[in-house]
Each structure stands twice: as C-alpha cells, then as structure tokens.
Design a protein around this nucleic acid. Structure first.
Length: 358
DNA sequence: ACATTACAACCTGATTGTCG
DNA sequence: CGACAATCAGGTTGTAATGT
C-alpha cells in the first residue's frame, strides 16, 4: 500500500509538471492565431505580393536578405543601375532598396515594412524557383544539346560526364574546383581571363530565359496562342534585366553541377559551389558593364531571341536557329544602332566588337 | 555518444484553372 | 474540348532538438 501511495504521489507530480508544460504551450499558441488575424488584414495583398515576389526572385535578386526587405527607402537612394552601386556597402544597400521599391508597386509600399511582407517574399522566391528548376530539368538536354538523361534524373552522376566537365572547366571528378566564370559562359567555351567575352554564349542563356518566361514548349515551336498565362504575361516582361541574365547563368551552372537541390542558402551541398556568390558577381559585372558595346550586343541578341522571334510564325527549330543567326549577323553589322544612348563606361571600350558566333 | 523524434525545405505527380 | 501551365498535396531528405 505504501509503495502504491509513493507511486501515486510521483505520478501526480509528473502530471502537474505536464500540465504546466501544456499551459505554456497553449500560451504560445494564440500567437499563431494573432498572426492569422494580422494575416487577414494584409491578406488582400497576398496574391499581389506573391506574384511580384516570384518575378523579383527571377528578374532582380535571387538571394535577398530578409532584413533588408523591411527597410525604408532612403530619401535619395543610389539608382539601382548606377555604375557606382558597388562602390561601398551603403551604396549597395541604397541601390538594393531603390531597386526593391521600384519593383513592387506603390500600392504595396506601405506594407513592405511588415514581417508579413518579408516572410511571404522569402517563401515565394524559393517556391517559384523550384518550379522553374523543375521545368528546366525537363528541357535541359535541349538547352545544352546534351542527352536529356543527364538532367532528368537529379542524382545522375554528372560529375563524371566528360562533356559536362568541359562545360564547367573541371578537370577531374576527384578534384572538384569550380570556377567563378566557367567555360560554359563564354562563346565556343573559350575562357577569357579578361572577361571581355563573358556571357558571350547568349543563346544558352536566352534559351533558359525563354523556357522560363514563355513556357518550355516555346523552345520547340512558336506558341499557338492558346494555353494558360505564361510568366512573361503575368509579369508583363518585355525585356531582360541584369538580374535575370545572372539568374540564367547561375541556373545553367546549377543544372550542370552534381547538386540535386537548389538550397535557398545558396550553397550547393555536393559541389560546394556558392551560387549566392556567383549570382552577386554576375549581376555586378552586368550592372556595371550594362552600357558597354559588348553587353548591349548580348542583351539585344537575347531580347530578340526571346521577345521578337517568339511572335513570328511557326518555324521548326532548325529553321528557327538559322533565323536567329541572321539577326545576329545583322546586328553585328549594324552594331551602333542597338545602343542609341551610346554612352559607354570608361572601361572596356577596347576591341572591335566582334560578332558572337552562334 | 548514439538513437529517435519533429520539423522544415525541397521536389514531384496529380489536380485545377484558363485560354482559344 | 484539348493543350498547357499554375498550384496543391504528399513524399523524401536533411537537420536540429530531444531522449536514452
């Protein structure tokens, strides 16, 4: 009897502590309810924010830091496309905010300091990206002109495929040293230390962007006009921006890498590639060189491939490529016409603006 | 120190929605 | 209705917290 009493006492004690614990747990639960209420107030904007966040993640910034999203726009911000954007940490932040506030419509500006906004943006970006990656994996074979089996199975041993090693400039599968500017970014895979021709393989980048913006079927035949809205319609995109070219370059490398998933932290688990750093570097190069002849040329090519060629009548892909070659050559000949504002930054005006071979 | 559980991030297949 | 893309729900995987 004594033993039972002792046991009973102990059980009661346990029960009390459990009840206490339960109380604190319940005390924390209402927070979620409150959040749900706050959610209701702001939820009118949910869809709008989500759409713009998805676009933002692809066209502007792949890896925004969540605390910067809540900052107020400075009175006289550094313009997002200013060449001295990257001069100091504070100009970078200022330009980031300038770009952020230009991207999201004025209607949303008052909501942008809430954590509801940043949470939603931070959730939407990887979500949208996963969607694009899935689409791209299906057509990666066509994009790279390689067997599609390399890409459809995420854990295919890409590290040991010689063609892919060549694209990434990796010598052996054991020594995994990835470059910031791998050969795949250069025309005819010819690396150029001075970076004069970087992003010169515009066709690859254009294919990636076209598949993402106009749907994967747009790669093979001109859209027949029916079907659901594509990203480009929902976002009303008419031209490419530095951010999305960098986005395409990063995704090209990711698709070739042995990584099986694209973490939102921006580091490849297997490859240890820092996609975040790559994106930052690529965007920086593109923003600071945006007005140079070479970059203007590349951007014009990409814009034509994605936005002009898409509207022309149905052509099968072989004819289609001949056609883009023609455009390419014509543009190379006309060169100056494509950059009517003409102002080039001091650096990188050398070189005869050779046409990029396709 | 190791095993287990809980949870979040991500991917995928299935479903839903939209257009001509 | 057919074709297509967006979205949802469920499964998988990696990881931090917790238990043994």
């Amino acid at each position: 009897l004594k033993m039972l009493q002792v046991q009973m006492q102990k059980l009661q004690e346990d029960n009390r502590t459990i009840k206490e614990e339960n109380k604190t747990l319940h005390a924390e639960k209402p927070k979620r309810k409150q959040r749900a209420n706050a959610h209701d107030e702001l939820s009118v904007h949910e869809e709008t924010i989500s759409i713009y966040a998805r676009k933002y993640g692809m066209m502007i910034e792949m890896f925004p830091s969540s605390d910067l999203l809540n900052k107020r726009l400075p009175d006289s911000p550094t313009p997002f496309d200013s060449t001295d954007r990257y001069a100091t940490a504070s100009t970078q932040e200022s330009a980031f905010l300038d770009e952020l506030y230009r991207h999201f419509p004025t209607l949303l500006h008052k909501v942008m300091e809430s954590s509801y906004f940043s949470d939603l943006v931070m959730k939407s970006i990887p979500d949208a990206r996963a969607n694009e990656i899935k689409k791209l994996r299906g057509v990666a074979g066509d994009i790279f002109d390689l067997p599609s089996k390399y890409f459809t199975n995420t854990s295919y041993d890409r590290a040991n495929v010689p063609e892919i090693q060549r694209l990434l400039g990796v010598m052996s599968s054991t020594n995994l040293a990835y470059k910031t500017f791998p050969p795949v970014l250069f025309p005819e895979l010819k690396e150029d230390r001075s970076l004069k021709t970087v992003f010169g393989n515009w066709l690859l980048l254009a294919r990636i962007l076209k598949a993402s913006l106009h749907g994967i079927t747009s790669l093979h035949h001109a859209s027949s006009g029916r079907g659901a809205h594509t990203n480009s319609m929902k976002w009303s995109v008419q031209q490419v921006m530095p951010g999305c070219i960098a986005w395409a370059a990063v995704l090209a490398i990711f698709l070739l890498s042995p990584d099986t998933e694209f973490s939102s932290a921006g580091i490849g688990k297997r490859s240890t590639i820092s996609y975040k750093d790559l994106f930052f570097t690529y965007k920086k190069v593109l923003v600071t060189k945006w007005k140079t002849k070479r970059v203007v040329q590349i951007v014009t090519n990409i814009d034509h491939y994605i936005f002009k060629a898409a509207q022309l009548s149905a052509l099968d892909s072989a004819v289609h490529e001949d056609f883009t070659n023609t455009i390419d050559h014509a543009l190379a000949a006309l060169d100056m016409e494509s950059s009517d504002d003409g102002s080039e930054t001091a650096a990188d005006v050398t070189g005869p603006g050779t046409p990029t071979a396709a």
